[in-house]
Structures are given as C-alpha cells and as structure tokens.
Design a protein around this nucleic acid. Structure first.
Lengths: 342, 342
DNA sequence: GACATCTGTTTAAGCGCTTCGACACTTCAA
DNA sequence: TTGAAGTGTCGAAGCGCTTAAACAGATGTC
C-alpha cells in the first residue's frame, strides 16, 4: 500500500507538503508541486479514505436513501440515483446507498458514525419521521420531494402542480370539455405521497378555471385495474374525450383498451401522459407527455448538499433552499382537437 | 460527538474493553458486557467509521458498480442494487454506488483508497478491462455476469442457456414448429453481452434438438423496431406460430401488432417472454415467462464477497466461486397448443 | 541596517479506533 | 506449594492523514 509518506520520500519533501499540494490549501511553489504530482502518478498513490475522513472530519461521501417500494416507477429512481452519483463525483464525493427500511435509525446511524457528510432523502412523506432526526443531529440533508416542515433541510422536486395544470391547459386548448384523470392506486393517495396529490390538485384547479368537467379514478397500473377504471369512466361520462394518465403501468393497457373499444387516438379521444419522454416515445401513437427531468433532480439535490456542506464547513448556517423544477409539455401524436359534437 | 472514550468512562472501563465488547474478539465478563451495552445505548454511541476503517483496515463497505447504459431493463438493475444493499446490511456492510463510466480507473481508485473492502461488478463484458485491475490490486470482487477469464474473482449469473432452452422446450411441447426469437438491438450482440448471446445459444441448441425451425431477429425495443421485426418474420416465415421475446420493450408493441394483424394470442400464436414476473403479469393476456430472480442474484453476490473477505482476512486464498441461478418457467395465458394445420 | 512581511516548507500533535502484549487474579495439576 | 494455564481487563502503540504553529529565507520598507 502506498502512503503519503512514500510519496513524500519519493518527491523529496515532507508529507504535509504532499497533503497541501493535493488539497491546495496552502501556497506551494510550482517546482515542488510538479515533483509531488509526478511522484503521485508514478507510485499510483490514492489517499486512504479512512485516514482522510478521520483527520479531516469529512468522509467525502453522501448517502442516498432510496425507497424499497416498487409502486413508484422504478427507472426514474434509478435515473436519479445515477445522476446523483455522477454529480457527486464531480465534487469529489462518493455515494452510499441506503434503503428506506432503515428509517430514522438509519439516518442516525449514518450521521453519528460520520460515514456520510450529508444525506439525500427520496420518497419523502409529508410528515416524514426522518426529518426531526436530521435536525436533532445537525446533519446536512436535501429532500427529493416536499415535506410539511422542512426547516433545516433543503428540498428539490418537480413542480407537480404546474405539471397537472399543463395537462388541463393543453386539453382545454384543444377544445376538450370532459376529461378523465387516471391516477395511482389508492394506497399512494392514502399515504399522502406529495407527487400524486399535487399533480391532481394542479390539474383540478386549472380544470376548474378552464371550465372542464373531470373525473379522477385511481388505478393500480395492472391491465384489470385499468380496464375497471376505464369502464367506470365511460359509464359515468360517456362524453369523455380526454385522458390524463399519471400511472406509467396504466398507459399500455389504456391504449389497448381504447382501441378495442373502437376509439381511435387522437381522432376520437386524446391521451396525455405524465411520464418520461423515453417511455412516451415507446407507444403507438407516440404520447403527448408532461415530463420533468429526473437527472436534473439528482443534479440539483447534489448542488444543494454541496452548498450546505460548504456553508457548514465555513461555520455558517446553510440556507434551506427550496427548488421546484418546471416540467415541460411535449406534444406528440396522442392528442388532437376534440371531436365535433355528433 | 460521542466517542469510545465517553462510553468507557460512562461504563467505568477502559476503551479497549468497550472495543472488545463491541467486536466480541475477546472474552469479557457478562457483568462488564452489560454495563458497556447500557452505556452505548444511553449515549447513543456509533463508532466513527473513518477511525474504525483506519485502525482495522476494513471499511465495512462494498462497492457496487452499475451501468450508466439504459438498454438493459432498468428495474432489474434497481432490484439487484436494492437486494445487494439489503443483504450487505445483514453482514454489517454498507454499499457504495459507482458508475461504470469510471471504468478500470474507478476500480483502482476504490481499491487503492481502501474506500471499499470488495467490489460487485454489474454489466460485465466477456473481456472486461476491470478484471485484470482487480487481480493486480488483489481486490476481492464478484461479477454479476460471466467473463472469459474470471480467475481471482467470483461470479454469479442467471443460467441464460437454460432459460433459452426452457423456452424452446415449452413451445416444442405445445406442438409449435416455427418459432421467431425477438432479441435485443444489434448493439447488444455486438458488444458480446453474455446474457443475450447465451440465451440465444441455449434456445438455438435446444430448438435444434427438438426439430424446431426458427428465426432470430434483433429489435431495439421501440414500436417501429418491433413492427419491422415482426413484418420480416411474417414475410419470411408466414407459418410462424411461436414467439420468444427477450427485449422487454418489445413485448407491448408485439402484442398490439399481433392483435391488429388479426392474430389472437394464444389461439393463433403463442408468446413467451424472458422477463420479470411482475412485468409478465401486466399484459393482457398475462404472459407465460421464463424468469430468474434478480433479488437472489444480488443476495448471492453479497454472500460470495463476504466469503472472499472472510477467507482473505484469515490469510487464506478465497475460492473463485461460480454460481448459475436456474430460471423458472411460469405458464400463463399467452401460450397454448399450436393451431392445427389449415 | 534593522525590522516587518510574505512565501514556501517542516514539525508535531492529534483524529477515534483496534489490537498486541502485559498484567492481575483465579483455577487447576503435579 | 509451586508453576502452568486460563480469564478478564488495561495501557499504549499505531493506522495514514490533516492542519496549526513554527521556522527559514527572500523581499520590501523606512
């Protein structure tokens, strides 16, 4: 194992000089810097992570707490996790993966052991138990999602209210008057998942303003569940010409069911999805969709954590940032003008 | 911050005694053990990770290297990652997430810095550049996937050859004689992704033994690509009555296309998928599928790494384990007897 | 010419833990 | 009765790094 002492000897300087060259925290002559860098390269030196963490009281690790649950669209989670990892590396940080089932104790463990310098929490609930723990331990953290009381932490999320409104506006602009909103399973609403409630609220408000009539139906994302939801929609409001789908699993079944019931998209009914562009492109017809960038979410979360760590390191009190990412509407083939009344 | 010295003082013993109580590496009287445990609990003590890693030369972290690429079915990756994390925790280990784009340098960085005690590599290529680095550094590692030269590392993977054979057998048993194999995009085969090649080989061999005629068509997993593949199949072999689909993205489009071309599943054609059960259940009709457990894959990978670390810690030479997980066939609604010849 | 200032480097004191060897005491065998 | 072996605890060294403080030498100021 190559240590800093080996590098120092090889470069003919003291080990603190090597440390200062590597950290840039003190002025070092060009000449010395060159010799040290050469020695580092020639010996293949990598600072021992444990020793560094112990001495500097910084592990250069951030923990990412991910849900175990799979009723969220999984690829999005993975995309966020990878974006977080990539962004963190650019700041010289690594990412530790923690599962949600460790709960508040997990947060305590990570914070108290100094394993990670900061945390990013996914799948946050409105009254999340982990947040008070974070505050009590004075741990720097960012939430992906919103919480009721987010003092002492930063937050970033998609602006789901805007996303819902965007859907309502688009369908209203096309002249649709009766809309069905196919949401997540009822369990998602019962645990007050912010993204589900906020999208619905955004849609509902804008729909009201634009004079749309609408139904909200929960849907588990299976074929049967989608069939059930659609049947009830068509029974209750035969004149429905617009569909907003938030549950990714319901998209395929919905399109199939509409086709088999003799309805053509977009001539007879329009369908707009709240999902990733990649997914929207996979269907025929390609779906008009409202999307937020998962990558951006991960990137911003990392920036927030880095900002907090920098502020805390300088002895300051970090700002509790609150970022809402604006979603974009991409019009594709699945939405069109409302059919003329028969 | 609570240190081991605080615990020692609180319990009226020396700090080494506390350490021995926690590690169990020396006999400690029942009485002392109780007092120490109480002190730990009362003070909320968690050992400092950096100090522990430095002194014990073990970080209690394993690194998981995941692909950035998204042509693999992402939920499977996430399921493996979560299974790895959960299994590792049961051994007192945490998981560090590394992205594949760091390549061999990433392996060097992690190994040389002592950040992780071992690595789990996903998305392994047959002549993966990271493996020689692993050997050179003497780092303990497990591959999820197979490689040409895997000396010095352990491996675990699904038995894709058996999976392919299972598909051939099932369709042959049902009396089908002309089969189409809808695979991944050509890029996947060009980079010699083991899972794609081995499934195809397993299918091909068994198909040969069972006297099946078959076509292999690549498919990118989009609607257009699936439509193209299907059109060519039906043009070249109009008598095709069985479909094997490995590309998850192609499943939905294929079912839709078969339906619109007037073919009923399973009366006219049978479809068998190589995908997770969860996904297979989502379609209508529910798909007969051949599945390997992603969770099991992650779990076994962790067991292998733990075995290697234990052996290396005792000064031994770890065994290079090689585990192939047998896939299971679940018959659902999408396969049935071949139609009688007209 | 004396002193302050700046630049570049070294010395040395930890960071909080593990672990080796020493030690005190008890138990057992010869 | 003595020595050997076992049991339970402690003291202290050291893991590889960071960083405050000290220091040496060059440069500038009055």
């Amino acid at each position: 194992m190559v240590t800093i002492a080996d590098v120092a000897r090889h470069a003919g300087v003291s080990s603190s000089t090597v440390s200062y060259v590597l950290s840039g925290k003190r002025a070092i002559s060009e000449e010395t810097r060159r010799r040290v860098r050469t020695a580092v390269r020639e010996l293949g030196y990598h600072p021992n992570a444990g020793a560094r963490a112990l001495a500097a009281r910084r592990s250069h690790i951030i923990a990412l707490m991910v849900p175990l649950r799979t009723d969220v669209y999984v690829p999005v989670m993975m995309e966020i996790a990878i974006a977080v990892t990539t962004a963190a590396r650019q700041h010289g940080y690594d990412v530790l993966l923690i599962t949600n089932d460790e709960g508040p104790d997990g947060v305590r463990r990570i914070a108290a052991s100094g394993l990670a310098d900061g945390l990013i929490l996914m799948d946050v609930e409105l009254d999340d138990e982990r947040i008070p723990v974070l505050r009590a331990q004075g741990t720097q953290a960012t939430l992906i999602g919103l919480a009721d009381d987010a003092r002492g932490v930063s937050c970033v999320d998609h602006d789901f209210v805007a996303a819902g409104a965007l859907c309502a506006d688009h369908l209203a602009d096309l002249g649709h008057r009766e809309i069905a909103f196919i949401g997540y399973g009822s369990g998602v609403y019962h645990r007050h998942a912010g993204y589900a409630e906020r999208t619905l609220a955004g849609f509902r408000d804008r729909a009201g303003q634009r004079g749309l009539r609408f139904l909200h139906r929960t849907c588990e994302g299976t074929y049967e569940s989608t069939a059930g939801a659609l049947a009830r929609v068509l029974a209750d409001r035969p004149g429905t010409t617009g569909f907003v789908v938030q549950n990714e699993g319901a998209i395929g079944p919905l399109l199939t069911l509409l086709r088999t019931s003799g309805r053509t998209v977009p001539e007879d009914v329009s369908v707009i999805a709240l999902c990733q562009d990649q997914l929207a492109e996979q269907f025929a017809p390609r779906l008009t969709a409202v999307t937020g960038s998962a990558q951006e979410l991960g990137r911003v979360a990392v920036e927030q954590i880095m900002g907090r760590l920098a502020a805390a390191g300088d002895g300051g009190r970090p700002d509790d940032d609150r970022a809402l990412l604006i979603p974009t509407l991409t019009v594709r083939e699945s939405t069109g003008p409302a059919p003329l009344l028969p």
